[in-house]
Amino acid sequence: MNELNINIEKGTSLTQDAFIRLRKNKMAMIGLCILIFFIAIALLTPLIAPYTYEGQNLELGATSPSQQHWLGTDVLGRDQLTRIMYGSRVSLMVGFIATAVALLIGVLWGATAGFLGGRVDAIMMRIVDALYALPFTIFIILLTVIFGSSMLLLFLAIGAVEWLTMARIVRGQVLTIKRQEFVEAAITMGLSPWQIITRHLIPNVLGPIIVYTTLTIPSVILLESFLSFLGLGIQPPQSSWGSLISGGTETMEEYPWLLVFPGLALSLTLFSLNFLGDGLRDALDPRASKD
């Protein structure tokens, strides 16, 4: 009761309110911590990696975790910890950049369709519906087969797939707020549709956009690892979590740690991003939460 009074006296903005709610969510905070840990590792890898990712030591071969090699070495004597660290750079970079691509296309597409409405909206959303029906994973495989698997292509291809849901969410939100008075005021003042969309509509749907972005990153990371696992993504000697897991699967009978550690790194990252996304959803949009 006391706490409530203090809140009323100070007055909290909606953002502060959301932040307080997020901080109370233990799983989301654990997720955030794990995520920051992985991002820090990914950024610092070139400085703190104990070995080089392609440095082989054929005499050593595969060894189980030891003092020199905390997570063991692979068949070619390469340090597993170093390779997982370099893998985190690939996975997180793909996750963030491809999500940014998806974000840009999806938000602009959805906001434009929702704001203009009418026939433009119908056509734009019909295109989204049609694209939804396409087998996209298969198309990405097709793209990597045809044009080779470059990093840039992976970013673009994955980003181009993931924008659809974003467009739908943003459109729905814009439809509900565009009837409100401040938008009408902006129209009366003679602002161009572009100005209204970028300055008034998008800032007001930021909540759902942030939530969905956090939930898109893990699915993008998953897609990259999936391709690398099949051997169609990141090519050796570079390492990505997917290719490490794929390598670990081949030798798991003799050297299970080569499968377990990269698998653990990937699962932990997905785990933390999902929990953070769920927490953000509960904090930013209490109506949409599950409980």
Partner: peptide, 30 residues
């Protein structure tokens, strides 16, 4: 909702979502 009967299956479900098939498959196999 919000009892042990809720948390146990839902936490298990979260693990199921976070563990990709190409990690789960080899682990089950192993």
């Amino acid at each position: 909702p919000n009892s042990l009967q809720d948390y146990v299956p839902m936490s298990t479900a979260m693990i199921g979502i976070c563990m990709p098939s190409f990690v789960l498959g080899p682990l089950l196999l192993l």
